[in-house]
């Protein structure tokens, strides 16, 4: 009979034996050696039936297809832009994925995006050599004007967004800021300087307490205290924004 040597939701370190025997299956972040399942990284163990996987708590962003990210233009070429993605790799935005307008060959494309501009873009493809293609054609994808960018731990982004965007929409409603959260750990905010500051504090609080339950209520209380207004719980938004 196989034996699980850790508890569900326990922190495990690389090399730690998670389970013995063949009754459990190694999931993401784990590997099997002989009849043991061993942790292949630092993470939070998650036991789902027979499968055991590790949820990452730290680490830099790894580009994935269909992620919406916030990125910065670092170079302009003949037929596109190179953008920095807050990961180990830069991405390519080609003119045909940037806009539906007709652009004559050889035209000055800095008119659309120039070096230093921040964009909200979607990753359309990632190759095995980590060549990344992105697109700015689609709902919510655009160039960002004004506001400020903050960096958060990209592993906490799902918590900042909340279930179907409920957490971020609560912050938006409470502070009146416009907020865009990129999967790559960059967050764009724009609003009154004071409310921007409150929104940043709220995001930092979520980042720090992401692993604790009852987070929504605490963030709600925090926002009510800071803004001095009654805060409606966030509505679930269909699209991440």
């Amino acid at each position: 009979m196989g034996k699980l040597l850790i508890q569900d939701k326990e922190i495990v370190v690389p090399g730690e034996i998670i389970a013995e025997g063949m009754d459990h299956l190694p999931g993401q972040g784990t590997y099997r050696e002989g009849d043991k399942i061993i942790a292949g990284r630092l993470g939070l163990a998650n036991v789902e039936g027979r499968a055991v996987k590790l949820i990452a708590l730290s680490g830099r962003y790894i580009p994935k297809r269909n992620d919406t990210i916030i990125c910065q233009v670092i170079d302009v070429g003949f037929s596109g832009w190179r953008v920095e993605t807050n990961s180990a790799y830069s991405a390519m935005l080609s003119v045909k994925d940037a806009t539906s307008e007709f652009i004559r060959r050889g035209a000055d494309i800095t008119h659309y995006f120039n070096v230093g501009d921040y964009l909200v873009a979607k990753i359309t493809n990632v190759t095995s050599q980590k060549l990344i293609d992105i697109s700015t054609k689609g709902p919510g994808l655009r160039k960002l004007h004004g506001g400020r960018i903050i960096q958060v731990n990209c592993n906490k982004v799902p918590r900042i967004i909340g279930k179907a965007g409920s957490m971020v929409s609560m912050i938006k409603n409470a502070t009146g800021c416009r907020i865009t959260v990129g999967q790559n750990g960059l967050v764009w905010l724009e609003g009154e300087p004071k409310s921007e500051y409150i929104a940043i504090e709220a995001i930092r609080k979520i980042e720090q307490e992401a692993h604790l339950s009852g987070l929504t209520d605490r963030v709600k209380a925090f926002l009510e205290e800071k803004t001095g207004k009654k805060v409606e719980p966030g509505v679930e938004e269909p699209e991440l924004r």
Binding site: P14, I38, L42, G43, A56, R60
Partner: peptide, 11 residues
């Protein structure tokens, strides 16, 4: 290295 979230088979 473990704190940086890299894939490691052991410490």
């Amino acid at each position: 290295l473990a704190d940086a979230g890299l894939n490691m088979k052991d410490l």
